[in-house]
Nucleic acid binder design. Structure first.
Lengths: 199, 199
DNA sequence: GTCTATATCGCGATAGAC
DNA sequence: GTCTATCGCGATATAGAC
């Protein structure tokens, strides 16, 4: 009956992810999670050991586990490596909007869960910072400080998530992932003085 | 004794702002607010009518009430107007980090408080969108869609708030408001193809 | 206006039957 | 592994003394 167990655990995780994203961790009750998952109230504690543990399990289960080394060959050149990384990040934020909403929520407060989230994020941004430093050393990027450039890049990568709040104001915005990545890469490359690679 | 009343109300508001920013609205209790404000537990209900009303009062009290028309003359030229607006927004997010953290939290979830927050934000971004459209019409800005450009600008304006999470990784970042605005304006202007105005 | 005391509720967690 | 029933706590809000 291991299939059954995985099934219940997964249903809890998926419901929790959805509800945490919509209402925040504190704003979500175990009762809501269990109702949404069609699961008995006691099973969150039984399977995970409490609401906090569900949060951790969420990231272990759904945060993309790259292993950025796996893409080492594509990361060799700073320019195409940066383009690839930006596209991967935007792809993740579009693919799992719930988890990336949770990330954003937790990062803006001093929650006890912040360190968990950061432990998953740091390697990703670290790899990009490295690309920026390499690119600058090779004379391919133009900025004063790679830390500041990285911040702006983070902002642009996350900006499309703001769109949902301003739909009426923004006019018709293309929702296609490839297009969004493309726009972001263009904007960022202009910002750091790179001419677009010819694919 | 009106001075005393204002004093208690203000102490409640300031404590609530701080705690909401740190812990989120749902993660903060009325008890915590009252303790931080050195005020009796019953006074939040007495003066504001409940925790939710405190949230609304927060924005009415602390959200910068411009009246962007007030700066109409500085907004006449799209280029200098945009630079001015970016600087004002970053200035606000640096000046009241708590309120801008609250904004960011509420925007990522479907909270009942979201509409309140948006009603304060929409005029600001609307004015900037107008600048973008004007600038494009005058051949001063280069982007495909003003909606998409606005999103990236939002992202860059908010990006410096991410810095606190990655201090160790970013290296030494200049914290001076003028410098942060300057960097953001430069990056954005490059992104939309504007050469820096000579002050 | 401010306090204490308390009503009422909903939370997370668990004991124990099945 | 799943259920019901419930414990114990802490939440918001308020009644009523001062």
């Amino acid at each position: 009956m291991e299939q059954a167990e995985l099934d219940v655990k997964m249903r809890i995780l998926l419901s929790a992810k959805k509800l945490f994203a919509e209402q925040g961790f504190e704003g979500t009750t175990v009762r809501q999670i269990c109702e949404a998952a069609s699961v008995n109230l006691a099973l969150v504690s039984y399977h995970f050991g409490g609401k906090d543990k569900v949060f951790i399990a969420l990231f272990e289960q759904f945060f993309p586990g790259y292993n950025l080394d796996q893409y080492q060959d594509r990361m060799d050149d700073p320019v195409s490596g940066l383009a690839f990384a930006i596209q991967e990040i935007i792809s993740f934020t579009l693919n799992d909007k719930e988890l990336s909403d949770i990330v954003q929520q937790e990062l803006t407060m001093r929650s006890p869960r912040k360190e968990i989230v950061l432990s998953f994020l740091r390697p990703v941004w670290g790899a990009i910072k490295q690309l920026l430093d390499q690119g600058k050393a090779q004379g391919k990027f133009y900025f004063e400080s790679s830390g500041e450039a990285l911040l702006m890049i983070m902002g642009v990568c996350l900006s499309h998530k703001l769109a949902i709040n301003y739909e009426a104001q923004l006019g018709n915005i293309e929702a296609d992932p490839a297009h969004i990545s493309q726009q972001a890469i263009q904007f960022i490359f202009k910002g750091i003085g790179v001419t677009m690679p010819s694919e």
